[in-house]
């Protein structure tokens, strides 16, 4: 357990550093690569915590995101210019960071220890019910899938609806009719 914890903290520090570089760098390509590195660290953390389903999904989504960002975003010119540092803004950031860290301290003090989640007690819990009834009730060997598509199928339907609506929104922004109409109005 300690080896897993050390690896997890190393990955977390790596991801935080990658995110900071992605925010602070002036080069768009470097920022995209750093975002990809942070996502890859998250996939490795999922593997360390023995969640291969999540790790697989995170890794392929990260690859696609990096490819799309590099192909679509980076080839364009970067028109952003540096904003001057403001003392008030810096003070507000430091204040909010301090409040956030204080809230984190109180929250983590109240959390259960690592590796002993709330649902894994000896008393009959929801996770225990899933493990006990997953195979006989659904016939699926992969319990993650049996929860996603059988016990929690309604949630997955909502999730699919969210993706559908967001893609429809993207099409509505990028569709040809609006572009041609906009061009003819000009």
């Amino acid at each position: 357990m300690t080896a897993i914890l050390i690896g997890l903290f190393a990955l977390l520090i790596f991801m935080i550093v990658a995110c900071l570089i992605a925010i602070e760098t002036r080069d768009l390509l470097s920022a995209v690569v750093c975002v990809g590195a942070a996502g890859f660290g998250l996939a490795l953390a999922d593997l360390l915590l023995s969640a291969p389903d999540l790790a697989l999904t995170q890794m392929v989504v990260e690859f696609i995101c990096v490819v799309v960002l590099i192909r679509v975003v980076v080839t364009r010119q970067d028109h952003t210019h540096e904003t001057p540092k403001d003392t008030f803004a810096l003070a507000a950031v430091v204040l909010c960071l301090g409040l956030f860290l204080a809230a984190c301290g109180f929250t983590f003090a109240a959390l259960r220890p690592f590796g002993a989640p709330l649902f894994a007690g000896p008393e009959p819990t929801m996770a225990g019910q899933y493990v006990a009834h997953g195979l006989p009730d659904t016939g699926a060997v992969n319990y993650v899938t049996s929860i996603l598509l059988d016990f929690r199928g309604y949630d997955t339907l909502g999730e699919a609806t969210v993706i559908f609506v967001s893609i429809i929104g993207a099409y509505a922004v990028l569709r040809s009719v609006g572009r041609i109409g906009h061009a003819s109005h000009k």
Binding site: D53, L56, T57, V60, I64, V68, A140, V141, N142
Partner: peptide, 21 residues
């Protein structure tokens, strides 16, 4: 094989789109 091995519709769908991309 999403109900037998790690993976499933979402991850497999992303891989399918990766081939076309």
């Amino acid at each position: 094989y999403g109900h037998l091995t790690p993976g499933g519709g979402f991850a497999g769908g992303v891989v399918l789109s990766a081939a076309f991309i």
